[in-house]
């Protein structure tokens, strides 16, 4: 048991840490409502009014909505493709004994350790040959492939834990392979699908490197990349800058606050023993 003074000390240190983590975020949000003059003159004060002027500038004068839409489209499509392909493969690896099973599993797992950024030159050349440079589909394919190793790892691990009796009972009742997969295995896998989805959706949503290399046209840019565009354009208008940062952080922060347990489990999965 902790002595009372120890508990008090630990609590004080933890409260201090939380402040260090949250205060900068709070300043960012509050500054989004200030004029640039206010930010310069009184950085610690609350805004004089919660006017939406800066947010309106972002909304009307930048392509924020287009960037946001691109990020949504790219993330959702690549996660759907990754989960579909990864789960099917994981199902084959987890539930069927066949020659090469172990080798194929290890082939996918090897991808976990590979920093794909370093293969960006060949990816660039390959996507150019396919006509997919400056194309959101190019990003989708790269992201889906990048997420496969962790998806196969998470899904295989989960699918192996489903008792064989379920499958055998369905087979005796005359269910075919497809029916067993779609009616029994997939519905049971939902928690693992959520983990694999979050594990990859957050880094894909936040990625800046691949759009930087693969996307050039403004209309195809994702949110982190678009952010660099208007951070440059409004570099002297700090109110607008903070508003842009706040708006960009908002979508994921809201989901995180609602689903913090799943986010933490998802992002640390693989690094934490289940």
């Amino acid at each position: 048991m902790l002595k009372p003074w120890q508990a008090a000390l630990y609590q004080a240190l933890l409260v201090m840490t939380s402040l260090v983590m949250l205060y900068p975020v709070a300043v960012m949000v509050l500054s989004a409502f200030k004029t640039t003059g206010e930010i310069y003159a009184s950085p610690f004060a609350l805004p004089e009014s919660f006017a939406l002027r800066n947010l309106a500038t972002i909304w009307h004068e930048t392509r924020f909505l287009a960037y946001l839409g691109n990020s949504l489209l790219v993330t959702a499509t690549s996660i759907a493709l990754m989960l579909a392909a990864g789960t099917l493969a994981a199902y084959a690896l987890a539930r069927y004994a066949f020659r090469g099973n172990e080798a194929i599993y290890l082939f996918f797992l090897a991808g976990l350790m590979v920093p794909l950024k370093l293969a960006v030159i060949p990816l660039f050349i390959e996507l150019r040959a396919l006509g997919l440079i400056d194309n959101r589909l190019g990003l989708v394919l790269v992201y889906a492939a990048m997420g496969l190793p962790s998806t196969v790892f998470i899904m295989t691990g989960f699918l192996r834990t489903i008792p064989a009796e379920l499958e055998e009972a369905a087979r005796i009742d005359g269910a075919g392979e497809g029916r067993i997969l779609f009616r029994i295995m997939l519905p049971l896998s939902r928690p693992a699908l959520v983990i694999a989805g979050i594990h990859n959706a957050v880094p894909i949503w936040n990625d800046f490197f691949f759009p930087l290399v693969l996307i050039q046209s403004d209309h195809a840019k994702t949110l982190p990349q678009g952010l660099t565009v208007f951070m440059g354009e409004y570099s002297t208008d700090w109110g607008v800058l903070f508003a842009g940062l706040t708006l960009s952080a908002l979508p994921l922060t809201l989901i995180y606050v609602a689903l913090s347990r799943q986010f933490i489990a998802g992002l640390t999965s693989g690094a934490v023993k289940g």
């Binding site: 983590m21 949110l223 952010l227 922060t253 986010f263 933490i264 992002l267």
Partner: peptide
Amino acid sequence: FLPVILSTVI
């Protein structure tokens, strides 16, 4: 964990 979920760009 809040900053962990935010983009390095932000």
